[in-house]
Design a protein around this nucleic acid. Structure first.
Lengths: 334, 334
DNA sequence: TTGTATGCGTTATCAA
DNA sequence: TTGATAACGCATACAA
């Protein structure tokens, strides 16, 4: 690969002039600049980012650490981050932790070693450690799941969304809603569970919570168990779209239909939500916008415009979208 | 951030020894090595990958260029690439082109400038240019969509998969299958269309092809138009799962039911395929495995073990999974 | 405005 | 086995 010196030689100028011309920094004679650009083009010169980074003491790369790339919520978020990053001139390193602590730790260390300019992180749990980044002076924007000690934070209003969803179920006259959630150390899932709990408590209804591990094959079996219980739930709030699929699967086995025999509402407006019959009611999160917002905060921190500002929190509101799956037909009341 | 010299000072040795101890290269006195490791730990030393890369003249980073991160097929593929890369000690830069030529070009240039060790690329079209990478001596593994001039290539058997799917539709006694595809410069979509075409041609049936742009809002309208035609199709083969959603949407409007009024089979076994009623028949592609295979080829090229070997092609076979949506009930024959 | 020369933090070569 | 030192390719301070 051609280097700056090669371009300099071809253009009959010094490396400094080439550097200046190519980075259009300061004043450089238009004639020389043209000669340099021509030479660079002819040689197909691509600046060496490694050397540039070393000299500038910083990369143009962000780390994006997510827990599950198969979850459409996170891919939408990733799209937002990547798009915003790209517009700001940053590349994005993708790290998929698969909800695994060891992997998360390793990835955060690697990101620190790569000297990323900043990181957007969905922590596995609320006690995850982003200190290797912070200690290196690398700004971190925590996303989706709150962190005990982190930097800026962007999330959706999980508690409120769950409250709205649960109240909606009750309003539809369902009387035994269950909450299908995730392990209790998953901040967002836990907040949604609490929102659900607050509502059923207030109505003096029993709380039925099922916490399904992320990698569980037995998710369907766990819901089955619930349905086999003495007083099975008559409706469900699932805290992510993959759990909605689990519930739908369990219901199908028993020929139970949503929007008639049981109620169902889920977090996340998945692409398929309107393809099932009846269409799935959801609490939609602005996943893409969350990603973009995180990117904005990160870029501000990197520019140093908010050096003295403490951690900022951006909470996006969720949207209740009532479709068919949560409705209770009049005939089945009581 | 502490540097090698800081560790050296703390451990009372030279930088060379620190470097050797930390990279456990060559022989270094166990006592000194311990002292070095202790000092490094105490200082929370994180090696500076930028400097290391400059010195070693190469990064431990791959570029992954995909066209649409919202397509579950590509996220599954990305997961495969990322996971394999991580095991091999590489980080992955994610570039999402959104099927946009200019973005693709820009991303490939940036990747070249970042001096990635290799790239896994889903080209937008068959005339996409990966030359900026190849010219830089960066190995490229092309994935999913064939490229006129590229490196190694990993894909699924699109033509054959489409043949199988179309034959299945005919076997179920559907008589006017349509192919819902993508613009003709999308290699994989085009191969699937050709597979479909080969079968209908052989049976003397009319070919009904609808090419829906990637970002089209009017997808549903285009399918509507098909259904409004003089002799509307009685069944559909969609070349990706997002098109299946489009068709399902159009059918719902007309209260047409798959597996009864019309037949439907789609490429890609999306997570929701079994959640619709009836469950969706699909031609499954091993997306994750394609990603892993691409990673393997790339790593072999990087190691230089296949320097003299010409471009290799790996074709994974697809799997026909017949569920309910493609069935034609006996009552509706003829 | 241009050129020379230095240093960014490592690794690797070479001599001790 | 260890240490001093020279690159790696670029950006910039400084001198011209």
């Amino acid at each position: 690969m051609p280097r700056l010196v090669d371009v300099a030689e071809a253009a009959q100028v010094s490396v400094a002039t080439v550097s200046r011309a190519l980075n259009n920094s300061r004043s450089v004679d238009p004639v020389l600049a043209d000669r340099v650009r021509a030479a660079a083009a002819k040689l197909r010169y691509q600046p060496n980012a490694i050397a540039r980074n070393l000299r500038r003491r910083g990369t143009r790369v962000w780390a994006l650490v997510i827990t599950n790339i198969n979850n459409p919520f996170y891919t939408a978020l990733a799209r937002g981050v990547e798009e915003a990053a790209s517009e700001l001139g940053f590349s994005v390193l993708l790290y998929n932790t698969e909800e695994d602590e060891a992997r998360e730790r390793r990835y955060l260390d690697v990101a620190a070693q790569e000297r990323v300019a900043g990181a957007v992180v969905v922590p596995r749990a609320n006690n995850s450690e982003v200190s290797s980044l912070l200690a290196a002076g690398i700004p971190v924007v925590v996303v989706d799941r709150r962190l005990d000690r982190g930097g800026d934070f962007v999330t959706a209003a999980s508690f409120e969304g769950a409250v709205t969803a649960t109240e909606h179920l009750l309003h539809e006259q369902w009387r035994r809603p269950a909450c299908i959630s995730r392990p209790a150390d998953t901040p967002t899932a836990e907040q949604r569970r609490q929102g659900y709990q607050a509502v059923v408590d207030r109505h003096g209804l029993p709380s039925v919570v099922c916490q399904i591990p992320f990698h569980a094959e037995e998710g369907v079996a766990m819901v089955d168990e619930l349905l086999d219980g003495q007083e099975p739930p008559d409706s469900f709030l699932t805290v992510d779209s993959m759990l909605a699929l689990v519930v739908l699967h369990a219901l199908r086995h028993r020929r139970l239909r949503t929007g008639r025999d049981v109620g169902l509402i889920s977090f996340d407006d998945a692409a398929w939500a309107q393809a099932v019959e009846p269409p799935l009611s959801v609490v939609a999160q602005p996943a893409y916008e969350i990603g973009v917002a995180a990117a904005r905060l990160l870029s501000e921190r990197i520019c140093g415009s908010f050096d003295e500002t403490g951690p900022r929190t951006v909470t996006m509101s969720t949207t209740l979208i009532v479709r068919g799956s949560s409705r209770r037909p009049p005939s089945s009341h009581g």
